[in-house]
Every structure is written in structure tokens, then in C-alpha cells.
Computed example of a mutant assay.
Amino acid sequence: MSLYAPPRDLPTRVFTTMPETFWKEGDSDWVRANKPGQNVKSFLEGPSFDVNGNLYVTDIPYGRIFRID
């Protein structure tokens, strides 16, 4: 039981996709610990905007930061 109303469903759309040139086919400590036996090309999280409107995300398994402008 919750005292709050259930969240409403919102329509979504794909904002952008990662170009295949940035996909990794490798392995990392993160992949072995969190997704063992899986082929992880990227795992983006930690979105953050700067004052210029650029969106930054981190690629956790491979230690990269991407800017989406």
C-alpha cells in the first residue's frame, strides 16, 4: 500500500544511439564482475548536463566519458 498515487505512464522516444564505431568488443573487470559471460559493448549511465546543454554519460565497463551535444 502506498500513500502516493501511482506514477503516470509517459510516452518515450529514442533521443540518440551510440555509433557502432564506439562499441567495444573487449572484456573488463566490470564486465567479469557484473555481466559474466556476456558480450557488453557499452553500459551508459550517469547522465549529466553542463551549462551549454551538452549531455555527458559514462561508459562504466570501459572507463570512458561521452559528450552528446
Rank of each mutant, 00 (worst) to 15 (best):
P47C: 06
R64S: 11
S48C: 14
P11A: 14
A5R: 07
L3V: 03
V51Y: 06
T17G: 08
R13A: 14
D69P: 04
L10Y: 12
M18R: 10
G53D: 01
S48K: 11
F49P: 06
N52W: 11
E45Q: 03
R32F: 00
Y62R: 03
Y62Q: 04
G46E: 11
T21D: 13
K35Y: 10
A33R: 05
P61Q: 06
K24G: 13
N39F: 02
D9M: 07
N39Q: 14
E25T: 13
N39D: 14
T58H: 13
V40F: 06
V14K: 12
V14S: 04
R67H: 04
W23D: 10
F66S: 09
Y4L: 08
G37V: 05
E45K: 01
W23V: 05
Y62N: 06
D9L: 07
S28M: 03
L3T: 10
N39H: 08
I65C: 11
N52I: 01
D27I: 07
M1P: 13
R8I: 09
E25I: 00
G46H: 11
P61T: 00
Y4F: 10
G63Y: 12
D50N: 05
F15M: 12
S2M: 03
D50V: 01
G46L: 03
N52F: 14
K35A: 15
S42C: 14
D9Y: 11
A5L: 04
D27K: 01
V57I: 09
V31G: 03
G37R: 09
W30D: 09
K35I: 08
R67L: 01
Y4S: 05
P7A: 06
L44A: 08
G37F: 10
G46D: 07
R8K: 14
P19M: 01
K24N: 15
T12V: 07
N34P: 00
W23M: 04
G37D: 00
N34L: 10
A5V: 04
F66V: 11
P11D: 10
P47Q: 05
I60Q: 10
E45R: 01
F49W: 13
F43M: 02
S28R: 02
